[in-house]
């Protein structure tokens, strides 16, 4: 990767709270308690219950959510001041690829990603085809995204994100809508990536294959460490 500055992601006292929206109890609601973390491992999984703050934690990493206290730095860049630069370094894959794929066909969607590179129309199309071919999706280039299977959609979403060569890839429960076979396919693709991968999941078998696992519970990091210990901690937590 070109940005070889380490450590890649540093959270210092980063927390998120929101206005309650209720005029009678105006105290802000805490979504994520301030936390300090250095995320340098190549494969990091985040597990925790629905609503535990996993998604917010992941969205902090590319500036989609800004910390209301503390800071988040990616390769030395503050997500608050250099949001656009951070988002070009941190690719984000969502649970539902249909909300992520903007254009009617995979080819056009990858072209849209490549728009920032200021290529000509023909060169951009060529580059987009090359990206799709790189992920074995060239036969789907002109299909409607509505005609693709769930797995194909998620792989396409992954390709459109990777097209701009981010150095970090963040995935928010990417396998939740996939069947077993497509999950396996997606994980094989992810394993082969040179990028740093940070992924949230409910699939503990998947989490077990990562180097480091964070357990998020009620806006806190309840455990941080090796997958085996993290998973048994999580099981105890759920009771």
């Amino acid at each position: 990767m070109n940005q070889a500055v380490s450590p890649s992601i540093v959270l210092s006292g980063a927390g998120v709270s929101i206005e309650s929206g209720d005029p009678r109890s105006p105290a802000p609601k805490r979504i994520l308690s301030p936390l300090s973390l250095t995320l340098a491992e190549r494969r990091i999984a985040v597990i925790g219950a629905n609503g535990s703050g996993k998604s917010t934690l992941l969205r902090l990493l590319n500036g989609l959510v800004l910390p209301t206290s503390g800071t988040v730095h990616v390769h030395g860049r503050n997500t608050r001041d250099e949001g656009t630069a951070v988002r070009s370094m941190v690719g984000f894959v969502f649970t539902d690829p249909l909300s992520q794929l903007v254009m009617p066909t995979p080819l056009e969607d990858v072209e849209l990603s490549l728009r920032r590179m200021k290529l000509g129309k023909a060169r951009r199309r060529e580059a987009a085809m090359a990206v799709l071919a790189g992920y074995g999706l060239e036969h789907l280039a002109a299909s409607s995204i509505y005609e693709l299977s769930g797995g194909e959609r998620q792989l396409t979403a992954l390709a459109t994100v990777l097209a701009v060569e981010p150095s970090v890839l963040v995935l928010d429960e990417p396998s939740t809508l996939l069947d077993l076979r497509n999950t396996k396919l997606l994980m094989e693709r992810l394993a082969a990536l040179p990028q740093q991968v940070i992924m949230s999941t409910h699939d503990l078998t998947l989490a077990a294959t990562f180097e480091r696992v964070l357990v998020v519970d009620d806006g806190h990091i309840a455990f941080d460490g090796a997958p085996g210990d993290a998973i048994s901690h999580y099981r105890k937590l759920v009771g």
């Binding site: 998120v16 929101i18 206005e19 929206g21 609601k29 979504i31 609503g51 998604s55 917010t56 969205r59 500036g63 989609l64 959510v65 800004l66 209301t68 997500t79 608050r80 949001g83 656009t84």
Partner: peptide, 14 residues
């Protein structure tokens, strides 16, 4: 801007 679950995007552009 900031919101409840899931937190709204694009706060930086505000």
């Amino acid at each position: 801007g900031s919101s409840s679950r899931p937190p709204a995007a694009a706060a930086p552009a505000r």
